[in-house]
């Protein structure tokens, strides 16, 4: 049994030597860089996740903003269209009204003109007829002639009128 718990100071010293050689070499050449890489990766992942979260929040915010803008511009467009339609309708009615009024005016004016012209023409015709009748009558009276002569005279007068 004493074999199992024999005190071996040499083995303890060899254990320490082996341990410190392993720790000394690997702490510097392996574990240090590995732990550094692990910590760095942890930090990197954390930063990347944070960045991703931030980017997502940002894009969501942008999306809502765009959505709102789109909604607003759609409404605006609708309003513009409606306004334009109303304005056009109003303009059409106005123009129609104006045209109708103008044409009515024109017709009325033309009618007045015609009346004036007709009256004038009648007045002139009347005066000419009077003149002609007087001149014919004078001529008939001046030459108290035969019936044949009278007829001739009248015909001549009439021709004169026709020529005039």
């Amino acid at each position: 049994m004493e074999q199992l718990v024999r005190f071996e100071p040499g083995l303890m010293i060899w254990t320490w030597i082996t341990f410190f050689i392993v720790m000394g070499i690997l702490a510097r050449k392996a574990w240090g860089p590995m732990i550094e890489a692990l910590d760095k990766r942890q930090a990197d992942i954390r930063t990347a996740l944070d960045a991703a979260d931030r980017a997502r929040a940002e894009s969501e915010q942008l999306e809502t903003k765009y959505q709102e803008q789109l909604q607003a511009s759609r409404k605006e467009g609708q309003k513009v269209l409606n306004d334009a339609r109303a304005a056009a309708e109003k303009l059409r009615i106005e123009l129609e009204e104006a045209a109708r009024k103008k044409s009515a005016d024109l017709v009325a004016k033309a009618r007045d003109q015609i009346v004036v012209e007709r009256d004038q023409a009648l007045r002139e015709i009347r005066a000419t007829v009077v003149d002609l009748s007087l001149s014919i009558a004078g001529k008939v009276v001046e030459r108290n002639l035969t019936t044949q002569d009278n007829r001739k005279l009248v015909e001549e007068s009439l021709r004169q009128i026709g020529e005039a």
């Binding site: 082996t18 341990f19 050689i21 392993v22 070499i25 690997l26 050449k29 392996a30 574990w31 860089p33 590995m34 550094e36 890489a37």
Partner: peptide
């Protein structure tokens, strides 16, 4: 045991030393 560990980690940690 020490040699196994040192060899394994020196080989395995090469990419870490180079970063």
């Amino acid at each position: 045991a020490g040699a196994v560990i040192i060899t394994a980690f020196l080989i395995g940690a090469r990419p870490y030393r180079r970063g």
